[in-house]
Design a protein around this nucleic acid. Structure first.
Length: 417
RNA sequence: GGAGGGGUGGGUGAGUGGUUAAAGCCACCAGACUGUAAAUCUGGCGUCCGGAAGGGCUUCGCAGGUUCGAAUCCUGCCCCCUCCA
């Protein structure tokens, strides 16, 4: 294990530039890194959102990198702030979570968190440890340190105020609680996305007010989602979850727009920057088909969250099913017996449209018809060639071995009872 | 305490009595193209019956009402928000 303080110029360069949006202040941060102190790296987690996607991974990788340099990660479970709901971004009111729910979410979150962060060099603390019996006197003391005008500086508050949109008082409290966390754990550096800048700075300020050394604020860039436009987020459904199956993870990464390839490489892999520069160059003058580096990216990330075999398999699947329009190796199956119990089997045969519905390939009969009329459905009888099935001939499929293909990559095999 | 704005399909957001299963945009699905689940183009996008033509049913916060006919008008209720004090 590395001793804190000993850091090569290359590592230092990487720490402060790669996958970094801004560091406040960078000079102080560098000084801290070189000081030999084992730094306390703070990261907060809102238990109302237990899912981690690649957008979060950018920061987690940074934490991991610093762990490798000998520093300590402290993950704070925001069981109190979750009840408020961080107004950053959206203003939707959150429902309060039960304690049991918080624990459940935290457990799920941690499982994903430690796929990137080293558990042996991390500590998990619940906010309730200090907020559990935080008296009104202390609340008043805390709120007394800041003014409304200061908080209205924050971009989204200012915007909402100008738009005459609601701002709950508890929302103003959110940055304060988060800031107090920094005091409670004596954080040296806090991590967050660029949208967290205000909150991180309040922490920095509060620590100073309370006689501590102000933390450094480390902000990560926002990763663009698979739509290539908006930030990756679950609610926009443009995310790649850390929990994703290898095939889906690989496939979703292949659906990232070509012009995001380089930044995905930069934020999510260890491919050297020099190599990325060359890649970018080749892409710009069209001497490289974007598909190639994208495959490499998809493989690399899939490998990180699964393993080499899974990544290879995912790639093979992609090449066979998507590029080669072939059949996947494992196809979900529906048995004639199950269908029979649904009363849609005649003799030993099932109608294509009934099967589509029963196998969940379409949510409604109307959708089934649309797919049929759009030429999206093919049947493959006993290893033969795919035959298009059109609206009129919602015909019959024999039992074992027959396959149904819907769209480019959804398959079902009909099996005997 | 007073004044006012608003609740529409997954998301935005039009629509103030029929031509509105409800514009546009986004998302999504499919097809073409590209041997990328990129980009682009085309089409689709409540649901049920029907081979189709077509026809039912359900939908615009909730519950009633007016009308031949209501997302649109009336009454009551619920919810959200803003401003003034």
């Amino acid at each position: 294990m590395t001793t804190p303080g000993a850091i090569s110029p290359e590592d230092l360069e990487s720490v402060i530039t790669r996958g970094v949006s801004e560091i406040i202040s960078q000079e102080e941060f560098v000084r801290l890194l070189k000081s030999g102190k084992k730094l306390r790296l703070k990261m907060g987690f809102d238990p109302s959102r237990p899912d981690i996607h690649l957008g979060h991974v950018v920061g987690l990788r940074k934490l991991r990198q610093l762990q490798e340099l000998g520093h300590q990660v402290i993950l704070i479970v925001g069981d109190w702030t979750a009840q408020i709901g961080d107004p950053s971004g959206q203003s939707a009111t959150r429902t309060m979570l039960s304690h049991a729910q918080v624990l459940e979410n935290a457990e799920s979150y941690l499982r994903q968190f430690f796929k990137v962060v080293d558990q042996t060099r991390a500590q998990v603390i619940y906010q309730s440890e200090w907020f559990g019996d935080f008296g009104l006197a202390k609340v008043l003391e805390l709120t007394g340190k800041f003014t409304v005008a200061q908080f209205l500086q924050r971009a989204d508050f200012a915007q909402r105020f100008a738009d005459q949109k609601p701002i709950a008082i508890t929302e103003l409290l959110y940055p304060l609680l988060q800031a107090y966390d920094s005091v409670a754990i004596e954080s040296d550096v806090e991590f967050g996305g660029t949208d967290q800048m205000f909150n991180l700075l309040v922490g920095r300020e509060l620590q100073g007010m309370m006689g501590q050394t102000p933390q450094q604020c480390f902000m990560m860039p926002i990763l663009v989602g698979t739509d290539g436009v908006q930030k990756m987020s679950k609610s926009l459904d443009n995310y790649v979850a850390v929990d994703e199956s290898p095939v889906d993870m690989y496939g979703k990464l292949m659906s990232v727009p070509d012009d995001q390839i380089i930044s995905y490489f930069e934020y999510l892999t260890d491919v050297p920057m020099a190599e990325l520069a060359a890649l970018r160059h080749d892409l710009q003058n069209n001497s490289l088909n974007p598909m190639e580096p994208k495959k490499r990216l998809a493989w690399d990330v899939t490998n990180q969250f699964h393993d080499r075999e899974a990544a290879d398999a995912a790639q093979a699947h992609f090449e066979r099913v998507v590029q080669g329009r072939g059949l996947p190796t494992d196809i979900s199956e529906v048995s004639l017996g199950d269908l029979r119990s649904q009363g849609i089997v005649v003799g030993n045969e099932v109608r294509v449209d009934d099967l589509m519905l029963a196998a969940g390939l379409a949510p409604s009969k109307a959708q089934v018809k649309r797919l049929l009329s759009q030429g999206a459905v093919e049947r493959i009888i006993q290893g033969g060639e795919p035959q298009p099935v059109t609206g009129g001939e919602a015909g019959y499929l024999l039992q074992p071995g027959d396959l149904l293909k819907v769209g480019k990559r959804r398959f079902v095999r009909l099996t005997a009872p």
